[in-house]
């Protein structure tokens, strides 16, 4: 009479993995030994297999064209919603970057232009400011006329000062 071997909890758990081809050695070999010696284990495996086959009787599902159409429509509709196409983000980014670069070029050109005109093109107001002191005395200079008169006037002043200083 064959000796009845009771499967351990772990072996029972391994039984399904064994049937699924997911059990590796040495656990798989252990199950094979149990199956070889235990009619109870063989019955369990048989029942597990047959009931598993029964699950395969569940109906196969095929969707209709309508389902496919609805699914693709819902996806197409999502494009106009809050979701933003990353491609358009990169297009916008490129546009903004282009505008920023153009702006920077414009500012740089303006700065260069300002500096150039400031240095090399004569500025009338600046000339007036530079000659301000002369211009304020221009009437006097006109009255004096020839610079020779100024020299004479200077000599005359020195003469008077010398006279004042004499005892």
């Amino acid at each position: 009479m064959a000796k009845i071997i009771r499967m351990s909890k772990e072996q029972r758990e391994n039984l399904v993995a064994y049937l699924d081809g997911e059990l590796e050695d040495p656990a798989a070999r252990e199950i094979e030994q149990v199956l070889a010696s235990s009619p109870v284990a063989r019955h369990d495996v048989d029942m597990l297999s047959r009931t598993w086959d029964l699950v395969g009787e569940l109906p196969h599902v095929s969707v209709t064209q309508e389902f496919t159409g609805k699914t693709l429509d819902s996806i197409a509709a999502s494009r106009t919603g809050p979701w933003v196409d990353p491609d358009s983000i990169s297009r916008n980014s490129r546009r903004i970057l282009g505008l920023a670069v153009a702006g920077m070029i414009l500012v740089a050109a303006g700065t260069v232009g300002f500096l150039a005109t400031n240095r090399w093109i004569p500025n009338e107001a600046e000339e007036i400011l530079n000659d301000y002191e002369i211009l304020m005395e221009l009437d006097k200079y006109r009255e004096v006329g020839d610079p020779e008169n100024l020299r004479k006037l200077q000599e005359f002043r020195e003469f008077n000062e010398a006279e004042d200083d004499s005892p």
Binding site: R12, E13, N14, L15, V16, A17, D20, E22, D44, M47, L48, R50, T51, W52, L54, V55
Partner: peptide
């Protein structure tokens, strides 16, 4: 997963065994 499937298959066996035996 191994444990989950073992319990699931055992439960199915209990429920469906009468229909195959």
């Amino acid at each position: 997963v191994k444990s989950l499937l073992s319990r699931a298959r055992e439960n199915l066996r209990v429920k469906l065994e009468p229909y195959v035996t």
